[in-house]
Amino acid sequence: MSDPYGNPYGQPYGQPNPYGAGGGGAYGAPPGGGFPNQQPKTDGVSVASFVLSLLCCTGLLGLILGFVGLSRTKGGKRKGRGFAIAGIVLGLLGTIALVATIIAVATGGLKGLLPTAVNDLKDGECITADGLAEDDGGVTNIKVVDCDQEHDGQVIGTKKLTSSEAADYDFESQEDILDSCTPMLDGGENALVADPQYYLIALTQQEKPSSGDQVACIITLRNGDPLDKKLP
């Protein structure tokens, strides 16, 4: 039907613009000028959860961030839900392992697995060590073990050195060692030292100790055989 006002296109004046209010929108464009079928972004928190759960001592943080990432990726709002789930699982395992290690250290459960410093040795402890039987001063890799299993020696006396004692420390002979260790020992321990089958060794943290360093007097079998029980 022709326009009664003579409009050659047959469209009455005042009809809404088919391109939208601004005249610039494209057909099919969502409100606000966005792009149709736009993919959600990967959630950074979920990725961080996965990474932290793989690192030492940050498993708990990875576990917490995993739950946050799980919430942020719910319903497909963001990608990365798999990272969040992996962060939760690995973070939980890492946290359990960390707690178990702390408990083991606190209760002595790692005895015999980790080296012990001479300054940390205690009277009555049994030890294994590399070079203990050679008596060449090169004792390393000292580990505290149960006295009912084979061991290289037993600590029978310890003493913190004063500054003057540390300055004068030079135990190159068995006589020097006996002179230093004997005052620390009781009657039974002195009897062991006098027994020819046993040999007394004095150890310090470093070859030339400092004030406050400990000297540990250790008894072992003279023939180098291991001990298998706690000595009286």
Rank of each mutant, 00 (worst) to 15 (best):
G131I: 12
P4E: 01
G24L: 04
P30C: 08
Q174E: 15
I142D: 10
V215Q: 11
V144M: 06
T162G: 15
V105R: 06
L113I: 04
E150R: 13
V118N: 12
Y19P: 00
G66E: 05
G24D: 07
G6R: 07
G153S: 08
D170I: 02
G124Q: 11
Q11F: 04
G109T: 15
L61N: 02
P183T: 04
E150F: 04
A167V: 00
K230G: 02
L200R: 10
Q205S: 10
V89W: 03
I142V: 15
K79G: 14
S211M: 07
L54W: 03
A29S: 14
D130V: 14
V47N: 03
K122Q: 14
L60Y: 08
I103D: 05
I103A: 14
D148H: 11
P8H: 02
Q154A: 05
A29L: 06
D3F: 00
L200N: 09
I102C: 13
H151N: 12
C57E: 02
C57H: 04
T204Q: 14
R81G: 09
I103C: 03
V45M: 09
S173Q: 05
A104E: 07
G62R: 06
S53W: 01
Q11D: 07
L114F: 15
T116N: 05
T116A: 11
L52T: 07
G137L: 08
E134V: 14
C217T: 00
I102R: 10
P18K: 01
S46T: 00
A191P: 04
Q38C: 05
A133N: 11
S53H: 01
I85L: 13
A117L: 09
L55M: 15
A86G: 08
S180H: 06
L161S: 03
Q214M: 13
V139R: 03
Q38Y: 06
G22I: 01
E165W: 12
T204N: 13
I88H: 01
G59V: 02
N223F: 05
C147I: 06
Y199G: 03
D130K: 12
D168C: 00
L55H: 03
T158L: 01
I156Q: 13
Q11T: 13
K230N: 03
T182R: 14
N17T: 00
D176L: 05
P40I: 04
G131D: 00
G62N: 06
G24E: 03
G6M: 10
G108Y: 01
Y9D: 15
L52G: 04
C56W: 14
G69E: 05
G14D: 08
E125L: 02
S173A: 11
L93F: 15
D179N: 12
G6D: 11
K143A: 13
P30T: 09
D176V: 10
L221V: 02
C147E: 11
K208P: 02
G33S: 07
K159E: 14
D135K: 12
G23R: 07
P226C: 00
N37W: 05
G75Y: 13
K79S: 12
I142W: 07
N223W: 06
D136T: 15
